Computed example of a mutant assay.
Amino acid sequence: MTMHKPDAPTSAFYERGATPFFASQYDQRLHYCLYVPRGLEDAAAPLVVVQHGTSRGAASYRDRLRGFADSHGAVVLAPLFPAGLVDPGDLHNFKFIAYEGIRFDNALLAIVDEVAERFPVAPDRFYLHGFSGGGQFAHRFLYLHPDRLAAVSIGAPGRITQLDDTLPWWLGTRDVEARFGRRIDLEAVRRVPVQMVVGSDDVETWEINNPGESNWMDGAEKTGTTRIERLRTLERNFVAHGIDVTFDVVPGVAHRGSLVLPTVETFFGRLIDATRSITR
C-alpha cells in the first residue's frame, strides 16, 4: 500500500506528540491515534498498541501512556473500533475478532502496517495491551497472530476463550481454523511473554453475567463469577498448555483500566529494556 506523504513542515507537526485520529486505509470506518515522542530518534522504535474496551476510550489510554513512551522511546498506537458498525445498537463487535464481515485482527495488522509507513516504528512485532473488552480482544488476537507479538497484556476480560478444542468459539477453540483460516500455533504462543492483570476489587458482575444478550454464550458462567475468577481460569488454562504467565493483581483497584496501566508499563518496560540491552 502506498500512503500519501503529508507536506512538510506544517503537517509534520501533527506526526509528533499526540496525533489526530486517522482513518484506516484498510477500512475507513475504523480509526487510530498515536503518541510519538517529539525527540524520538530511534528509526525502529518499539510499538505499543493499547486496545480500548466497550467505552472506546482510545485517546484517554493513549494520553496516559505519554510518559511511558517518552521514557522508553516507544510509540503508542490506540485503535478506535466504533460501536454501531452495521447494527446501530452493537457495542461488542471487535471483542470476538470477526463481526459482520469485518476481521478486526486483520484490521489491526493493516493499521500497524500503515503506521510503519509513516512513523519510525518496528512493525514486525509489537506490544499489545487491552483491558476489559480490550482484554478479550488481546488474548484472542494472541491465538491467531502470536508471531506478530513481542508481548501481550490481558487486562480483566469479562469473557474468556480457553485453549480447548472441545468447546466452540468463543468459549473455546474448536472451530478456529474453520472460522479464521488459521490454526493456533501453540509453540509460537508459548514464546510470547504474557501478562494477566486485574484489580483486587474488580468483583462487580452485573455486566458479565447477562444471559440472553448478544455477548453471552451458555457455559461462560462455568469460568467464574467475577473477572478475577475468569482471569484465573484463563491462567490455569494457559499454564496447562505450557504457557508462562505473569499474573498481577493490583491492590485496591476495581474495574478501572487506567489504574492498572502502571503495572502494564512495568511489564512492558522491563521487556523493552531487556531487548535493547541485547541488541546493543
Rank of each mutant, 00 (worst) to 15 (best):
P6H: 03
P9A: 06
T10L: 15
A12Q: 12
A12D: 13
G17L: 10
G17I: 14
A23M: 06
S24P: 02
H31V: 01
L34A: 08
L34P: 05
Y35E: 10
P37F: 03
G39H: 03
D42M: 07
D42V: 08
A43R: 09
A45W: 09
V48N: 02
G53W: 00
S55A: 14
G57H: 09
A58R: 00
S60D: 13
S60C: 03
G67Q: 10
D70P: 00
L77G: 06
P79S: 05
L85I: 01
L91A: 09
L91T: 13
N93R: 02
Y99A: 01
E100T: 04
F104H: 05
L109H: 05
D124M: 04
R125Q: 15
H129I: 12
G135P: 03
H139P: 03
H139I: 14
F141M: 11
L142W: 07
L149W: 11
A151R: 01
P157K: 00
G158E: 04
L163V: 15
L167Q: 09
W169E: 09
W170T: 08
W170F: 15
W170H: 11
L171V: 09
G181F: 13
E187N: 07
V194I: 14
G199H: 01
G199E: 02
E204M: 08
M217Y: 11
K222M: 14
K222V: 15
G224I: 14
E229R: 02
R230P: 06
L231W: 02
L234V: 12
E235C: 07
H241S: 11
D244P: 00
T246A: 12
D248V: 13
H255G: 08
R256N: 12
G257F: 02
P262F: 13
T266Q: 12
F268T: 08
R270C: 05
L271Y: 09
I272S: 05
D273R: 05
D273K: 03
A274R: 10
T275G: 08
